[in-house]
């Protein structure tokens, strides 16, 4: 234990928890992700009122209701747009976007790409269960094409989306993957992600035990990244494209310039602008 960092506790996980009880199915991976997030915030000693947690819609997107931090439960797929506005208007806040694979990669796919490209300083935490949990089990962009279910007999036959490779290509500045069954490991990744400037993308494999019960066995499939993260996008791209999707750890730490709002002086008052726009 010689090297361990001793924390002077000011906040503990429970300081970030609201009194609203999660309605997730017991056993859902999202519970593990929630624990990780609160452990990470406690480790960083961030006052809850200095953190904004923004989501879209989905089981995963319910986290803003379960926290004492500022929470914004937004529109399906649009969490990143709302969070971008929040961060640019209130740069002193730590902004974390909590989303699902449906919310972030399907209906929110375009926001995902352009949020990575813009590189605003915030963290995107996607709880990826390779299914739409909330709407009862439709395939999502990350569902394997041969996943056979009542709702998609024989599977969709479509290649799954590769979120980390897309994030890298689009310009995200920190890219990592965790597993919900390892909340301390995910907490460590989230601490690094929050501390790193720019858009940090963290994909957490989070089993949906109700519509994808076989995902319980992910705990036997995940394996740690044997190599240190790279700062070279070309090397990261090579690793991500040859990865099996179950490697956990940090893959890429970039130094791309972050986007901050250029606060200019507008021409004319609000009333004049309104007058201009009037039909």
């Amino acid at each position: 234990m010689g090297q361990a960092e001793v924390i002077t506790p000011m906040y503990s996980s429970k300081d970030y928890k609201s009194t609203v009880k999660p309605i997730w199915c017991p056993g859902c991976g999202h519970f593990g992700v929630e624990s990780s997030l609160f452990r990470a915030l406690a480790h960083l000693n961030l006052p809850p009122e200095q953190v904004g947690i923004v989501s879209g819609i989905g089981c995963s997107s319910r986290i803003p209701a379960y926290t004492q931090c500022y929470g914004f439960h937004g529109v399906h797929g649009r969490a990143l747009a709302a969070a971008t506005g929040l961060k640019l208007a209130r740069p002193e806040l730590t902004v974390v976007v909590t989303s699902g694979d449906g919310d972030a990669f399907s209906i929110g796919g375009n926001h995902f790409i352009h949020a990575c490209r813009r590189n605003v300083d915030m963290t995107l935490l996607v709880m990826d269960n390779e299914v739409y949990g909330m709407t009862k089990g439709q395939p999502s962009p990350t569902t394997p094409g041969d996943w056979d279910s009542k709702i998609a007999p024989g599977g969709t036959g479509v290649n799954p989306f590769a979120p980390m490779a897309v994030a890298l290509a689009a310009g995200a500045n920190f890219i990592a993957r965790g597993f919900a069954g390892d909340p301390n490991g995910v907490a460590k990744i989230l601490v690094e992600a929050i501390q790193h400037p720019g858009l940090s993308f963290v994909q957490v494999l989070s089993p949906c035990i109700t519509y994808r019960p076989e995902e319980k066995f992910w705990k036997k499939t995940v394996h740690p990244n044997p190599v240190a993260p790279t700062r070279d996008p070309a090397e990261a791209g090579h690793r991500l494209l040859s990865d099996d999707g179950f490697t956990t750890g940090v893959f890429f730490i970039g130094d791309r310039p972050i986007y901050t709002a250029a606060v200019g002086v507008g021409e004319g008052s609000l009333d004049e602008i309104e007058e201009h726009l009037a039909i």
């Binding site: 090297q3 361990a4 960092e5 069954g181 301390n184």
Partner: peptide, 16 residues
């Protein structure tokens, strides 16, 4: 109150 370590610095042999 005993000391607190970073969650990942405890000597557990289990995930948590």
């Amino acid at each position: 109150q005993p000391r607190r370590l970073a969650p990942w610095d405890y000597s557990w042999q289990t995930e948590e």
